[in-house]
Amino acid sequence: MPVWQVVLLVNLTLAVGLGLGYADWGRRADRLYQELEATRARVEQLERERAACTTGARAGEQQWEARGIVRAIFPRADLLVITHEEIRGFLPPRTTSFRASPKLRHAVRVGDAIRFSLRGAFRDATIVAIERW
């Protein structure tokens, strides 16, 4: 076989090998990584839903646990304003207002450091338990 044909063959083999290698392993690795992330998020959500179920929540509701500090109490609007740490799978660290029952609102004062549980769907989460820490 002439040398130029050998060269062509070697280069084609290298190019096709690299291309197929990426198309197979590279893309499969990307896909697996994305699936892993999605599955991890789903598992966390299911765990939250299970935790919510064990405390009497309705189907589809989740439960989050977080720590924070009470910044304001608005009795008429049933709201507690809390500066909280990151609530995994829900909110970054920031100051947020949450709905809370009068009983829970009366249990805390502005400035209290608290551990609290939120339950509900994403846009409709309510504080269901509070304890000072």
Partner: peptide
């Protein structure tokens, strides 16, 4: 540091 939360 605001309260017992992780400080920024």
């Amino acid at each position: 540091s605001v309260g017992p939360l992780a400080p920024g």
